[in-house]
Design a binder for these strands. Sequence first.
DNA 1: TCGGACTATTGAACAATGTTCAATAAAATG
DNA 2: CATTTTATTGAACATTGTTCAATAGTCCGA
Lengths: 200, 200
Amino acid sequence: MGRRSDHSRDEIRQMALQAAESIVTEGGYKSLSARKVANEIGYTVGTLYLVFDNLDDLVLQVNGRTLDLMVKWLEQRVDIRDRGAETLCRLASSYIDFAEQHLSRWNMLFEYVTDKGNVLPDWYEEKVSRVFRIIEYALPVANNPVDQASDEQVARVLWASVHGICTLRIRQRLDLAGGQTTKQMTHTLIENFLRGRQAT
Amino acid sequence: MGRRSDHSRDEIRQMALQAAESIVTEGGYKSLSARKVANEIGYTVGTLYLVFDNLDDLVLQVNGRTLDLMVKWLEQRVDIRDRGAETLCRLASSYIDFAEQHLSRWNMLFEYVTDKGNVLPDWYEEKVSRVFRIIEYALPVANNPVDQASDEQVARVLWASVHGICTLRIRQRLDLAGGQTTKQMTHTLIENFLRGRQAT
DNA sequence: TCGGACTATTGAACAATGTTCAATAAAATG
DNA sequence: CATTTTATTGAACATTGTTCAATAGTCCGA
């Protein structure tokens, strides 16, 4: 078969991304393959390589969309005009809910490691920092910041920590923790951390 | 060629593990392949499958040895009889040093996800918790633990957090953090967290 | 010492992977 | 209607994990 022009290049891209997402959602990262995606959208492998540089490129774009979805998810669950410990806890909760709800796609966000030493394109980094900005905003201003860390820095410390709890929990590296839930753990973390930050 | 008996089954296993480690160290997780390992030790793929169930099994065993190495590394750098914030900071530092020094092997510890829903064998879980136990011990007893979390639980919260910082840093998801080093970040985390735990 | 039994090791085979690219068939153009 | 253009194909290649009949050494009893 030759030229068809059933879909524009961009339509094909969108279809492929959507197909990839459902494949990952159903069977996890490892079940993703070029031929599977191609099949699903009624094209062949060759076409996929007209639209994406390679599979890594496709994965990165899916990950970008996952980040977008995550921002939406958080904004839907937490009023981003709120601040304080309670808000942070709710954000953490929502983050963990997202990870559990979209397990495979969340996993792919971190399983995926580029061959080129983890250097990611700017448009992707931008999406990452959009997530961080939500946390930053919710972080209450400390009365007495003993250490020199700025709010931006503290936001990232705190969020990296929440992420760490989330990761180890989901990868089941924490089930000796005496039966505490991930939410309890993030609560412990945030409460103590903020209290310590206020106090001298 | 038929039977050779140059090496015992266990010798072959050890050789394979060592070969795998150096392949991963040099080229990262993705560069590991059965044939490469086999070649390196002067055997063929078939032999590898007499000694390991499959590649996942081999990876898991390498990871086990990486955990052993990590425990040794930590014990060499920190007197495990010490406690308190300073000790915890030093442990965190050492953990991050380990991750940086043995980047690929540390990476493999978390990139690797089993097909079977992340269920890991007992001997492996035991190695994981041996790491946690070091942290637990270093954790100072709080004067006034407001929350209900036990020391064991708190240790895991804290360590998951350190791990989160380490992960996001190494995966380069944090370089907008205003130039703070990973060690500064863990310091901020630990200091504030412990202060918050002591205070009411 | 010979010969048969045993078994450690092989390597060819299979299905599936990512990736490329000459061939081709349909649309576009004149 | 003929010609150019190009979107799409699918066969091809190298590489992957994994299996297993064939084989070539070792071992043991006669």
